Computed example of a mutant assay.
Amino acid sequence: MEQQPPSSTVPAEFSPLAQQEPPKNMGDLSKSYDRATIFFTRWGAHVLDHILLACFLTGLLSFGVSIDKDANGLYFFILAAIILCSYYVLLEGLTGYTIGKFTFRIIAVNAEGRPPGLWKSFIRSLIRLFEANVFLLGGLPAGISVLASDKRQRLGDLAANTYVVKVKDLHNVSKKQTTVLAVVFSIVAVLSIIGMIFGIIDIASRTPTEETFYSKDKKIQITAPSDWGKDSSLHDEADIEISNRFSEKYVLVLSESKEDLDSSFTLQDYTQAIEANLQDAVENVSVDKQIRTVVDNQVAIQFNAKGEIDGIKVAYIVTLVETPTHFHQIMAWTEEKRFESLKQELQKVSASFREVK
């Protein structure tokens, strides 16, 4: 009779039971990870995802998407939000991975160790907008939650009952699926980088355009580069208000009908009145010498001024134009520290003032 070897002599890795061992409880598995290690692994995946998404969104610009104007900027950021949400919701929901997670060999799973599904992924992604937003607290809430929570979960994980674990600790990962995802993610990453390169080249090669802005009654106009836009918050009585708040440059036009003034009122009188108003409205104001100029084939006076508003140092170019029926005040300003670099542009915008014939 042939003697069977003791079961203890059979290597564990060849045991059918060992091969079929179910995955560990995901909460306990996540809890077993070193806090710092899982934090930096998740952070690295998060950074890589954002770099690739930034490359992709930059590439969109090469297809004619412009964020120069307020309206187009709004559409662009809505599109960007949709892309960001779809990226996380679809990829994590269906596979558990993002490109960053796949690269760092971690995966988002539900309590059973499977991809969380679209609903749980949607919850995670929705909360991600607040806790992992680089523009809102820099992702600090997510980092604190991962370090402080018992099972290394960020707030989105806690809300969706999901976990982020190391791929090597799961027993149900398909090698075929891993290979397919590796190929697909590599292609997406390369295309994103190529898109970024074309986007940067396109942005750098664009010829600046100009836009004309009109008063409500369409009687006067002013022209500015396309990165300017209407800004209704500058002055309650302004006829034209435009700005680029990102670059801190502003221009408004105020018109005064001659019918409301004494017939002997001159452009010089108007200039003195504007200077006096500036002295009252701005602290520590200093006014440069007036110069005579021509705007829209009309006599004009221009001067520069500097002062402080709410502790911020501001520099102005004030241009006063007399037409047969009106006096027009064109006020352009920016922060004093930006004035020299923006002076030529502010002068050009001011000089573009025209009456609509």
Rank of each mutant, 00 (worst) to 15 (best):
V184D: 03
F303C: 10
G195K: 05
D280N: 11
F76L: 01
R42D: 07
T9P: 06
F246C: 00
V314E: 09
V299K: 15
T223D: 06
Y33T: 02
A111K: 13
D157T: 14
F39M: 00
D169A: 01
Q298H: 14
D236T: 03
L181P: 07
L79Q: 08
G156S: 07
R42I: 10
R152Y: 01
S350Q: 02
T334M: 06
V165T: 07
V47Y: 01
I83S: 08
S243P: 03
S62E: 05
I200A: 05
M1I: 13
P23N: 15
E283P: 08
Q272H: 12
K120L: 00
T212A: 09
V356S: 01
G64N: 06
A189W: 10
T103E: 04
A111V: 03
V167L: 11
F339K: 05
L261M: 13
K313H: 05
K175M: 09
K258A: 02
T207I: 12
D150G: 04
E13F: 15
D236M: 00
D70P: 01
S263Y: 06
D296L: 04
K313R: 05
T98L: 01
E112Y: 02
P116E: 02
S232N: 12
K337L: 11
L94Y: 14
E336W: 04
A18D: 14
L181Q: 02
L94H: 09
F63S: 08
R105M: 01
A71E: 13
R245Q: 06
E335V: 07
I78E: 02
A273N: 12
G93S: 10
L57K: 12
G100L: 06
Q221E: 13
K69T: 13
Y87D: 04
S257Y: 12
L346Q: 06
D150C: 04
T209K: 15
G96A: 00
Q221Y: 06
K219S: 15
A276N: 15
N172R: 01
L129M: 15
Y316E: 03
W333P: 07
D70I: 12
A189M: 10
A132F: 11
I127S: 10
T293A: 06
E345H: 04
L267V: 03
L254V: 13
D150H: 10
S205Y: 00
S247G: 06
Q298K: 13
V183Y: 11
T319L: 08
